[in-house]
């Protein structure tokens, strides 16, 4: 039998699959083992590629320069609650914000567009980016545009890079036993809305993505407890489960979450029940997980709730010295370990 047939039917060589882009362990392994290896590290104390954080941080005078980059692909391009333009701006602003850089110097925008993409859609995306920039108090300072042939990509890809300044930075690895975990709002809205829009699952209801820039919200939180916020992360792909597991692993603590205190809207809970999904595994695009020293948790919570974006914020858990690197959920019935999703969550029947 020829090699071609072998390739068609046979064993796969190591290939990249969608699992490697779903935000969980497979993606981290690919990046750690293959993509992030072999580059010179930054100076001591600075945050570079090896930290696998939301962005990089350089010392600049007394403060920090923070840089992050993100390529955005999403299907459908327009979805309930947002579109790829809003996502491209908010995603990068939020990555900067959770590193402490809530004041953004500027964003870049690089678009790769498929031949045949409607110009009216492009204008709509552009307007949405403008509006989102205004919300976040940022602007786009440079860009790039490429067009590729029909079928060479799916519609449009937008890469945004963000540069911001911070007096002090916050990593995703600074948790200590006793620290409290604060969540800025209800989980699962983005991923569930996308799944309902994408897969023709026939679900009707107010399922909308939460995609939004939250740098102002993070600024509010830091203002209330500067120095007491020890770790932050935005729970995007892989959901709260991946974000908290990563924080627990990097910080060397266990995290216990009290399920009853985790905000989930009725419609997300319902859609998740119907589809057999766990809201902890579902992506968010307008939320942050904040690790706070115990004595400042209430102050941070109060500050968050004073901001409309944080009105449903809640203290959801505590860091412990045992079960390091593990995420434990107290369901009210008993405790269990929470695993990270493997690949994109799919509706299940059993």
């Amino acid at each position: 039998m020829s090699d071609r047939v072998g390739e068609k039917y046979g064993v796969l060589g190591e290939r990249v699959t969608l699992k490697h882009g779903a935000g969980g362990r497979a993606m981290r392994m690919l990046i750690e083992d293959k993509l992030a290896a072999g580059f010179a590290p930054l100076a001591d104390g600075e945050i570079g590629l090896a930290a696998m954080d939301d962005g990089a941080a350089f010392r600049l005078g007394d403060g920090w320069l923070v840089v992050t980059t993100d390529s955005h692909v999403i299907h459908p391009v327009f979805f309930p609650g947002g579109d790829i333009g809003r996502l491209a701006v908010a995603g990068t602003v939020n990555d900067l914000a959770v590193m402490g850089a809530t004041d953004v110097l500027g964003l870049t925008s690089a678009m790769v567009i498929e031949e045949g993409f409607p110009q009216s859609d492009l204008e709509r995306i552009q307007r949405s980016m403008q509006e989102t920039c205004q919300e976040a108090g940022v602007t786009i300072v440079t860009g790039d545009t490429k067009v590729m042939g029909k079928g060479e990509l799916d519609g449009i890809i937008i890469n945004t890079t963000g540069v911001g300044l911070a007096e002090s930075i916050v990593s995703d690895s600074g948790l200590n036993p006793g620290d409290r975990i604060v969540l800025t709002g209800p989980i699962g809205e983005h991923g569930i809305a996308l799944m309902a829009a994408r897969r023709g699952l026939g679900l009707e209801g107010d399922l909308r993505s939460d995609v939004a820039p939250i740098n102002d919200l993070i600024r509010t939180a830091r203002g209330a407890a500067d120095g007491s916020i020890v770790a932050m992360k935005d729970p995007t792909r892989g959901g709260l489960a991946s974000a908290l597991t990563e924080m627990a692993e990097k910080s060397g603590v266990g995290i216990v979450i009290d399920e009853a205190s985790v905000p989930v809207t009725d419609v997300v809970r319902a859609a998740a029940e119907i589809l057999g999904l766990d809201p902890f595994h579902i992506a968010n695009e307008g939320k942050a997980v904040i690790g706070v020293r115990p004595n400042a948790a209430d102050a941070v919570l109060t500050a968050l709730r004073s901001n409309p974006q944080g009105k449903d914020a809640a203290i959801v858990g505590t860091c412990i010295d045992e079960h390091r690197g593990r995420l434990i959920l107290d369901t009210g019935f008993g405790r269990r370990l929470v695993s990270e999703p493997e690949g994109e969550p799919l509706p299940r029947i059993c």
């Binding site: 057999g276 766990d278 959920l329 107290d330 369901t331 009210g332 019935f333 008993g334 405790r335 269990r336 059993c350």
Partner: peptide, 12 residues
């Protein structure tokens, strides 16, 4: 099994 795991029932 999903429900037993989901609610942490093995612990009780």
């Amino acid at each position: 099994e999903q429900a037993i795991a989901r609610y942490g029932l093995r612990a009780v």
